[in-house]
Design a protein around this nucleic acid. Structure first.
Lengths: 213, 213
DNA sequence: CATTGTGAACGGATTCACAGCC
DNA sequence: GGCTGTGAATCCGTTCACAATG
């Protein structure tokens, strides 16, 4: 089904298409053109067609894309056709927020464990908060591949080593630190401080331009 | 000071450099080469030099960059040399997490207001949670430019319109929806669901390749 | 002589333009 | 006729290679 390996830039947009399709299907829209998808996503229509064409010819010339069909294809491409088991490590405010949000609204993933250094935290949605010593056995038993990491920066590398040693291959890292991981492990940094600072750059961009020629 | 306008790709990396410099200065390191910065950030040394050179010649040939001097320059370039006022709209779990984190650890920004649709929420760090009807007057009085938006997707566009109407020019959007904003407003999407799904793509990439030639 | 700063070469991603098809 | 799928052209960002210099 999939050709070569898809460029990062394409992969980043796939979940956006999926989200739009979910909305369209909820509104009983059955056919969608790349032009309309373009309006909904903000990407150009050509780009959308190219992105989808990477994985196959899913549309009908002269008509557009069947929303349900395309959704099925995307689910399969992204790997969401079967539920993905996920753990959250670090049960501070951010960890809680992520757990609650994904346990509730995100139908495609399944948070099966939350961990924190200190015991006694009360869980969410029937999930017990386990202490870190339970982690290795848990990961190996459940064969979890994906982790959201919300521990403090000081602890992040040590925890990461533990995760990787026990089979994790993808980490959504919220700690403001570059994680060292082996080749086969994929890390996506979601450092909110950094993103906020980038935003501030743009918030004062106009002023800056007045100062200079 | 600034030349043309800096590419997005460059701006995205500036806060990372700043973070590293803060750490180095804390450890009393006074000089740093692009090579060492490269190890700390994961970007190539050439890229780092190019990035910095966009804004001026801050280094010393044969020696490297003075950490404190470079930090000052970066603060000014990003716009963090003066405290930036920020509001948080939507005081659910994510809103709370962001407020607490940035009120505590992020020395460069100043959260001066948090808002929520429903009244009676207890604030954080001396911040009262205000209801949405207080928002217009507050924004105009305080001249806030930057907002973090953590309201539900259904409310996000309406709230955005209100923010923009009252002077906000940069929005960190956590709602899984494309916000329509005027030209001069900068939106950065931090849709955690989307990012998690991208991660899942990579977590099962190996498997996928086994299925296909 | 180590390291910055930068033009030139390269490569990847986006846009253009249109052929192919329903 | 309208919309997809795609080679060609273009744009943009990264890497290379080296000249400039403290």
């Amino acid at each position: 089904m999939s050709r070569r390996k898809a460029p990062k830039s394409v992969v980043k947009r796939l979940p956006v298409y999926l989200r739009i399709l979910d909305n369209l299907i909820r509104r009983d829209v059955e056919i969608i053109s790349s032009r309309v998808l373009s309006e909904e996503t903000g990407f150009t229509a050509e780009q959308i067609r190219k992105d989808l064409a990477y994985f196959g010819a899913f549309g009908t010339r002269g008509t557009g894309y069947n929303t349900s069909y395309l959704r099925e294809k995307l689910l399969r491409i992204i790997g969401l056709d079967k539920q993905t088991k996920i753990i959250v490590v670090g049960f501070g405010h951010l960890g809680k927020a992520l757990t609650r949000y994904n346990a509730g609204k995100n139908r495609y993933v399944d948070i099966i464990g939350v961990f924190d250094r200190k015991p006694g935290e009360t869980g969410i949605e029937g999930l017990e908060v386990l202490t870190m010593d339970k982690l290795p056995e848990f990961l190996q038993r459940e064969k979890v591949k994906v982790a959201m990491l919300t521990v403090p920066a000081e602890a992040a590398q040590d925890v990461t080593n533990l995760l990787v040693k026990n089979g994790i291959t993808a980490i959504l890292n919220f700690a403001p630190i570059k994680l060292d991981v082996p080749e086969h492990v994929y890390v996506h940094n979601a450092d909110l401080t950094t993103e906020l600072q980038t935003l501030i750059y743009y918030s004062s961009e106009d002023e800056r331009h007045h100062h200079t020629e």
